[in-house]
Design a binder for these strands. Structure first.
Length: 959
RNA sequence: GCGAGGGUAGCCAAGCUCGGUCAAAGGCGACAGACUCAAGAUCUGUUCUCGUAGGGGUUCCCCGGUUCAAAUCCGGGCCCUCGCACCA
């Protein structure tokens, strides 16, 4: 029977949600498990990669449910920011890529018109995430609790959170320099280009602006990353072809490029253009350097880019290859020089001054490196590489030399800050921030660095908060282990973090100053709590406007009296108390699962905000980090559209096949490339499982056999192993056992002659539920097929029972299986077509000896004692062999750990086991099989192999 | 630069925390056999190498060390990936 995955999925999803088995209700005396995955941002369609973490979370939750927990596994979306706004704008201007993606995902023209409104975009994707993705994958999620960060109740919750942070002294204010679009305010610069359309790799560079005095009182202003090189200044570069301007900055008049004025005006007060300054007119004049007071000549250089820094450059030819080559060219180019009246002597005067001792270089690294590489022109593209090399070594390893006045002997890194500090103080320098490359906002405007004088921060540098968070993290269950260790460092490095932003954004108004909107990370750290309260909102028991500070103080912090809070909020006491009770039941959060991108941002602030705001009993208990599913050629890009729409993939491969793919393809903690063929092979595996179970069900009932006990024992030991895996959320090993190893168990059972319908059914009643966490739809279908009702998803798994008898049954089969391997090996190597196989179990005395050794296994084995004791009961003909064998066993035992010795030497009646398996061996190898004990006088042993027999390893003779 | 992670057989990927159960799970691919008119699917077996007796040899990026014993521990090297903050 072929499986129709799609209809099977629809059938069971409807059945589950109709029966509301996904809804979370507290049950005070029952264990609970509360898990979330970090909700996705609403910036477009998700791709198949995103479903990995979500699916693993669902499998964990389903398993918890099946081990007797009440589970809470809510979902929501993060709509804060400008993702939805920019999406709406792209729809509005018919951006081809956006329209294509919408079309490819089956969006109608009519719907598309609606999507010019950001709030509609959020609604649209909320609906898709919820229905197409999460319900479509059969998640055991309580849909009543769905929330989104722009819902009124959510924003009330965030207001409360900010008030608590303020009250706890964790909000601070100070100036901040942020990348911003002139129209849309601050934007994020990141490689995935969420806010921007170009320049995702740009960095904010911290320039020091140095002021060089001209005789007429104006100042030439150069921006540099290396202020400490001021000691090596020889000249100043001005581009003669650029029109500079005189800008009034405070009390001073600066000469800078026109674009620089715009940038400066975003970072300094009262910047105003008051005149123009022709670059050419400055040539050959002198200006006075800050700090050193040295007068240096002004030379022409076409390399000064008006878009970079101030458009003017100071020249340090000793350590800047471009400056050195600039001088070399200028000296050579007589025509250019004479045009500006610059004599050769003036150029000669500007020869390099050694200022930094750089390991591996002589006094003038820039000169040295350009000579070595044979660079003698500013057009040489290797100049950049040369600069990088000299700068890197010089900055990190260099030491300031004698020419550097009071800084002589300083490490360059330290000198930089000190030199800058001194010049800033004396008014010879200012700070200036600029981007390393051009960045464009999604709206098309240029992104520049803007000073925000009164930016609010959450103070994650607070030592007390850090300490408590780090200590708490040590008590948490954090996976993988590497992150458990590293989160300590991450918290340690954390400093204050901007938590509100200006501009046109979706999000919560900052309650302390409503001009600001709470920033996208600050509003998504404490939110698991809100899944408790959101249900009461969606069921109409509380309205957003009632969710005041007193309300949350009461239900989340246990503050205030019911009477006061009822009158302050208008919420009835019984409702208040049931919310509070539910919060106390579900909290703390047991696991927060999220992608590896959260390791240095979301997870630490998630933890620290809990510690900052909540009482210790409500701090989170666990974190799981998942790595990515990538496209075969690289990252599946969210902003640029996923490879295939999730519903299409679900339709093509089947949801359970995808779920098994996510669960089994690799450890959660490595990246995995998505491959259609892999997913298909998992689908095939599920189909085979389906038909194999069909075979099992139609096995001709042969009644009870010895194998039934083995099968039952096997199921129990599998169960025990599986519980162990899930204890550490190892869904992969769990899937491997359930979907691959356990099928092998059934096959072995049949191969060994098992065939009891009752035993098979009994085992299936365990196997099928074990599949349910990973492939719930198929498991339900199978459950129904074996006549069970109503849901496999609500079955409570038994606890594993491990008995001595079961262990013996398993050990017996291990013996048989390893004998099959050994015999096959012998036949393969010898190319014998066997006519008879003789198996000889180890003699009694060897078993006795091993048993004695095992009994004393915790201690060191006394070989002499072992020999003596064995001698007492051993038959006379064995006595010569005893010492050798005893030594072998002792040596073997000394190498293996204690429980290992026990396991390999579990008590098995070998002769009996072999006897029973005789017919099986005979069928396997198509010949007569005889079994003896190695000390049976009646044994048939032409080649004398009996002496090779050892416990666990019977002797074999083939002919 | 700062920080983190990784390099395992044809490919993917377990194992490494707690050294011996490891020639190293599982999957994919390949090969052979069964079934079939055939193909596909499925099932069985093989898949480092040598071997007419269950064994030997050489392997887990490279070099060195610790140890009776190292894929696993330590030191050094080469290469790769990721994060670095207002993107969740």
């Amino acid at each position: 029977m072929a499986l129709d995955f799609s209809s099977m999925e629809a059938k069971w999803q409807k059945a589950w949600y109709d029966a509301r088995i996904n809804e979370s209700e507290p049950a005070p005396d029952t264990k609970k498990f509360f898990m979330i995955f970090a909700y996705p941002g609403v910036t477009g369609y998700l791709h198949v990669g995103h479903m990995r973490g979500y699916t693993v979370a669902d499998a964990i939750v389903r398993h918890k449910m099946m081990t007797g927990h009440r589970v809470l596994f809510p979902v929501g979306t993060h709509a804060t920011g400008n993702g939805a706004i920019s999406f709406a704008r792209r729809v509005e201007r018919n951006d081809p890529a956006t329209v294509d993606i919408l079309r490819a995902n089956g969006c109608s023209d009519e719907t598309m018109k609606r999507l010019t409104d950001p709030e509609e975009v959020v609604r649209f994707f909320n609906d898709i995430y919820l229905n197409d993705y999460w319900k479509g994958f059969g998640f055991m999620s309580d849909w009543r609790r769905f929330t989104s960060t722009i819902y009124p109740d959510y924003t009330k919750f965030i207001e409360w959170q900010m008030l608590k942070l303020k009250a706890n002294g964790l909000l601070t204010q100070k100036p901040y320099f942020a990348p911003a679009c002139v129209e849309h305010g601050p934007v994020a610069i990141d490689a995935s280009e969420t806010d921007i359309s170009r320049g995702g790799d740009a960095e904010v560079l911290e320039y020091t602006v140095l002021k060089f005095d001209l005789k007429d009182g104006r100042k030439l202003v150069a921006a540099t990353l290396r202020p400490e090189t001021v000691f090596g200044l020889t000249n100043f570069w001005v581009n003669p072809e650029v029109e500079y301007v005189d800008a009034r900055v405070g009390e001073e008049t600066w000469i800078v490029s026109r674009p620089a004025v715009e940038k400066l005006s975003l970072q300094m007060d009262s910047v105003e253009i008051v005149g123009s300054a022709n670059g050419a007119s400055l040539m050959g004049k002198r200006c006075t350097a800050p700090l050193t007071g040295k007068a240096i000549p002004i030379f022409p250089s076409l390399l000064c880019d008006p878009e970079v820094g101030t458009g003017l450059v100071m020249s340090v030819p000793s350590d800047a290859p471009a400056d050195w080559i600039g001088l070399v060219e200028l000296k050579r180019d007589v025509v250019e020089r004479e045009k500006y009246g610059i004599t050769e002597a003036m150029v000669a005067e500007a020869s390099p001054i050694a200022i930094i001792d750089t390991p591996g270089y002589g006094p003038l690294p820039a000169v040295e490196v350009t000579e070595r590489l044979g660079i003698d022109s500013l057009d040489d593209e290797r100049l950049g590489e040369a600069t990088k090399e000299v700068y890197k070594t010089g900055f990190h390893k260099g030491v300031m030399n004698r020419s550097c006045g009071e800084f002589a002997g300083w490490q360059v890194e330290q000198a930089k800050d000190a030199v800058r500090g001194q010049m800033l103080e004396s008014g010879h320098a200012s700070m200036f921030y600029d981007l390393s490359e051009e960045v464009l906002c999604r709206c098309g405007n240029r992104v520049l660095v803007k000073k925000i004088p009164d930016q609010w921060f959450i103070d994650y540098s607070d030592p007390g908060l850090k300490e408590r968070s780090k200590e708490h993290a040590l008590t948490m269950r954090i996976f993988p282990r590497e992150y458990y260790d590293n989160i300590q460092n991450v918290i340690e490095w954390y400093r204050e973090r901007a938590c509100v932003r200006l501009g046109n954004w979706l999000g919560t108004r900052f309650p302390i100053d409503r001009r600001w909107i709470v920033e996208a990370i600050a509003d998504s750290t404490l939110y698991p709590i809100h899944y408790v309260t959101s249900r009461f909102v969606s069921e109409g028991m509380v309205a957003a406007e009632n969710m005041t500070e007193e309300f949350f103080d009461y239900v989340l912090l246990g503050r205030g009296t019911p009477v006061d809070v009822e009158s302050a909020t208008g919420v009835g006491r019984s409702v208040l108390d049931s919310i509070r009770a539910e919060f106390d039941y579900w909290y703390p959060l047991d696991v927060n699962l999220g992608g590896k991108e959260h390791m240095t941002v979301h997870f630490p602030v998630f933890l620290m905000n809990h510690v900052a705001v909540l009482r210790p009993q409500h701090w989170p208990r666990g974190i799981i980090v998942n790595w990515y599913i990538t496209a075969t050629g690289g990252k599946i890009s969210k902003s640029k559209g996923g490879a295939q729409p999730i519903p299409d993939a679900a339709e093509r491969f089947g949801v359970d096949a995808m779920r098994l793919f996510y669960a089994h393809i690799a450890s959660l903690y490595v990246d995995v490339a998505w491959e259609d063929s892999k997913v298909e092979s998992y689908r095939d595996r599920l189909e085979r499982t389906w038909s194999f179970i069909g075979d099992l069900l139609s096995v001709e009932d042969r009644g009870p056999t010895e194998m039934d006990a083995w099968l039952a024992a096997r199921m129990q030991s599998r169960l025990a192993g599986l519980e162990g895996y899930m204890e550490v959320y190892d869904v992969r090993s769990y899937s491997n056992d359930v979907f691959f190893e356990m099928a092998q168990d059934f096959k072995w059972y049949l191969r060994r002659g098992g065939g009891s319908a009752e035993a098979i059914l009994g085992a299936l009643r365990l196997w099928i539920p074990l599949m349910a966490p990973v492939t719930p739809h198929l498991a339900e279908q199978l459950w129904e097929r074996i006549g069970m009702r109503p849901f496999v998803s609500t079955v409570i798994l038994p606890e594993a029972e491990l008995s001595e008898a079961a262990a013996a049954a398993e050990a017996g089969e291990r013996l048989v299986a390893s004998l099959v391997e050994d015999i096959s090996e012998i036949l393969k190597v010898t190319s014998i077509r066997p006519s008879r196989i003789i198996l000889m179990a180890a003699p009694r005395w060897k078993h006795d000896l091993v048993a004695r050794a095992v009994a004393s296994a915790d201690k060191n084995i006394d070989v002499g004692q072992l020999i003596k004791e064995t001698m007492k009961s051993a038959p006379p003909e064995a006595k010569r062999e005893i010492p050798t064998f005893a030594k072998e066993i002792a040596a073997e035992f000394s190498r293996a750990p204690v429980d290992e010795r026990r396991r390999t030497h579990a008590t098995v009646d070998e002769l009996k086991t072999l006897g029973r398996a005789g017919r099986f061996f005979s069928e396997q190898f198509g010949c007569e099989v005889q079994t003896f004990s190695a000390d049976d006088p009646a044994r048939v042993d032409p080649k004398g192999r009996a002496k090779h027999a050892r416990p666990g390893r019977p002797a074999v003779y083939v002919e």
